[in-house]
Computed example of a mutant assay.
Amino acid sequence: MDRLLWMHCYARAVETGSFSAVARELSIGQPNVSRHIASLESHLGTRLLHRSTRKLTVTPEGERYYAEVRRALDAIAEAESNARGEDQPQGLLRVACPVALARFKLMPLVKQFLVAYPAIELDLHVADRKVDLIEEGVDVAIRVGELRDSSLRARRLGTARRICVASSTYLSRRGVPQSPEELRDHNCIRYSLLATGTIWPFERQPVEVRGNFRVDSPEAVLAAVLDGIGIGLMPSWLFADSLAAGTVRQLLDNWEIPSLPVNALYPAKRLMPRRAAAFMDFVADAFAVDEALQ
């Protein structure tokens, strides 16, 4: 009874979504993969996967078990690597990142990272929701904003400087606000995931804004600003190209808005894989020379 093999088959089935892919990877044949996972389920006395002809679906029990199995397999791989004296980080690295930050700042680094660390398999989850690192088996989550979860540790990667912008077409139609207070008379695009809600947090004069468009995506805020719908408040790097092209204009630049930290988060009570540390070092070094993240 090789439970370690069962666990490995199960973890890779969850990660690839396919028994066939696991069979090719381990060179053991698809019927053997199915049999190993069935043996694991029988040993545990619970269903881990729902199987159909088209896809695998992980059960809630399977999700929790996967997170534990992944940690165990990572610890074993790390121990074996250390015993062999291997210096290169390797293995599966699961990273979560917000959509806009991934598109504008992280994706341009992915090729360089994979070239530098060819033995790492990067599994990037791009979503604006806050993933549960423990439950979902994520090694590193990059987030913009203050850390509120005491079960996580944070490493500062950079800073998101926020600015207020609008398109020339909107400003020609509605005028240019001269103070935060005047934003009350403008159509402001409300980002529904903003920690301060409808309050735009200018340091000297926070103001509650109004508008007829609310959205939970920074990229949608950018699109709405470019379309002349209203005024937006977002990190400066989101508008860098539009500012350079002159299609949008920065407003109220004499009124400071608190910047937000950009952190790499990882579980406090889990062994940090070498590949996760390598990833954070790589991104921190790249962000340190990016003026938009200072």
Rank of each mutant, 00 (worst) to 15 (best):
V144M: 11
W255R: 04
L56Y: 09
V248R: 05
W255G: 06
D241I: 01
R214K: 12
L222G: 01
R162E: 12
P235L: 06
K269Y: 07
K269Q: 09
S168V: 13
G158E: 13
T46F: 06
A264S: 06
D281G: 02
V262M: 06
A224C: 09
L122Y: 02
F287M: 07
R190A: 09
T53E: 15
R64W: 10
V99W: 09
V215Q: 06
F279N: 00
L152F: 03
S167Y: 09
I189Q: 03
C97G: 05
Y191I: 01
R155M: 06
E208R: 11
R143E: 13
R71V: 03
R204H: 10
S242K: 06
V221Y: 01
A278I: 12
H186R: 14
T57Q: 13
M7I: 07
W200F: 09
S27P: 02
A67C: 02
A77W: 01
D149C: 00
W255V: 06
G137L: 10
I199Q: 05
A245I: 02
E208S: 12
R3I: 14
R155F: 05
A79Y: 06
Q112M: 10
A154C: 08
S172I: 01
Q205D: 10
Q205S: 14
L133N: 03
D216Y: 04
R161N: 12
A220I: 02
Q178L: 07
A277Y: 02
T159R: 13
E25C: 01
P108Q: 15
S172V: 00
V14W: 04
A141N: 08
V207E: 03
A77M: 05
E135G: 07
L48W: 02
C9Q: 01
A195Y: 07
V176E: 13
E80K: 13
Y117A: 03
A127H: 13
A141C: 11
G85Y: 14
G17L: 03
P98N: 10
D149Y: 00
L171P: 01
D87A: 09
M1N: 08
F202G: 07
D139M: 12
A77T: 00
V140I: 11
T53G: 15
G62L: 13
S81N: 14
P258H: 13
A288P: 01
T46M: 11
D128L: 07
V33Q: 13
A100P: 07
L93I: 07
D227K: 11
E146H: 13
I142P: 04
V262P: 00
V144T: 11
V131E: 13
R210C: 08
E63S: 05
A72Q: 09
L93G: 08
F282P: 00
W200V: 14
M272Q: 14
L293A: 11
H43S: 10
R156T: 14
L106G: 00
G137Y: 03
L226R: 13
R174S: 10
V262R: 04
E291Q: 08
E208I: 09
A127I: 05
F104R: 15
L122P: 06
E146I: 01
D87R: 11
G62M: 08
R148C: 02
R143I: 10
V14H: 02
R161F: 12
N82E: 14
F19Q: 14
L238R: 07
A160D: 15
A116L: 06
N32S: 15
M280A: 04
R54L: 05
E80D: 13
D149I: 02
G211F: 12
N254S: 15
I199M: 08
L56W: 07
I257G: 08
